[in-house]
Simulated scan of single mutants.
Amino acid sequence: MNRLSEPHYKRAADWILEHGRELEKARMKQLIQGGHEQDIVTALSAFQNEDGGFGNGLEADIRMPHSSPIATSVAMQLLVELEDNPQADQMIHTALGYLENQFGRKRQGWYAVPPEVNQYPHAFWWTVHDDGMSWIDHHWGNPSAEIIGYLLRYRNAVTHLNVDHLVKQCMDYFMNLTAFESEHEIYCYQRLFNLHPDLLTQEASDQLQRAVQSLVVYDQEKWQNYVAFPLKFAAVPRHSQLGIPTSKIEENLQFITEQLENDPFIEPPWEWNDYMDSWGHAKTEWRGVLTFEALQWLLNYGKVAT
């Protein structure tokens, strides 16, 4: 397959540096030349609230300033990679405090967003309904499985939750799934297993492969839609890609390359149906997020010409 040419790579990177949020700009600089970890931490700190949680549009489809477990999990994905930075370490600890406080005893997990989300512009799937849940909350593992992974990694900072109990509950839930309806739930379990490979027993690995094969979309004609295409599950090369054929990963990389040859950014394959003024701003932010993600995939697989 063709690699993304250096001029097309530079064009996409320059688009992020000109139009992206400060967070994506800092991550792009880190990707290009390294040495910008503190810039990422500083940019990320702007999204953290006094309660330790993250909000303020970090998850760009949620415009409320208040913290949410889902936005905090997005922040933790980055902070884990920066944990040796003293400021990042402090941000992690305060975020863990927020997550402990937001734990739902009845749910034995976390709701993705609080009801206050309804008071601010947001994508319709984040609306909290009369039952206290958004559509996302119908699949327990998103974001609870991922959050439990962070609690386990930093268990010395956890003060009042039983981490071992939560891990057991989390794994029991996963192993008892007989139908896989949410790719995002499986992404969360992948992040858990990436943080804690010891949890990925042979039985868990088999279950994860069943989940991936149930959800992955191989039909290239559908990849322009919001679907779980191969790279969503296989962001980095591994000896085993959970049953995803190498040829399909190569096709997906080629698809991403062609997108960036046609445009300097990746367009979000979804839209809001309300708050359209805010959607325009959120869409620009998503372009930066998705373009950075695409460039990272191509670099991970050595598909950028230098």
Rank of each mutant, 00 (worst) to 15 (best):
W297I: 10
T291K: 01
N56Q: 13
Q241M: 09
L44H: 09
I249N: 01
S5L: 08
A145I: 01
N273H: 05
N85A: 08
V74L: 12
D274P: 00
Q90H: 10
Q296W: 10
A294L: 08
L17K: 03
H138C: 06
G104C: 11
M76S: 03
S278M: 07
Y111I: 08
Q33C: 15
L99Q: 05
M171Y: 03
T42H: 10
W15Y: 14
G149Q: 00
E181Y: 11
N156V: 05
N49D: 14
P245N: 15
V128C: 05
E22P: 01
W126H: 04
H122L: 06
F180D: 13
A71R: 00
E116T: 08
A204I: 02
E271P: 00
P86L: 09
E22Y: 00
A112C: 12
N49A: 10
K222Q: 15
L4A: 00
I40S: 01
H160M: 10
L177D: 02
L161P: 15
R191W: 15
K232H: 11
I244T: 03
Q77S: 08
N101A: 13
P230E: 09
D164S: 14
D51F: 11
G20S: 08
A211K: 09
L298V: 12
D84E: 13
Y226V: 14
N2S: 11
T178I: 02
V212G: 13
L58I: 06
L166P: 07
K10R: 13
E81T: 11
Y173V: 05
E116V: 05
N2L: 05
E83A: 12
S134F: 02
W135K: 11
A179V: 14
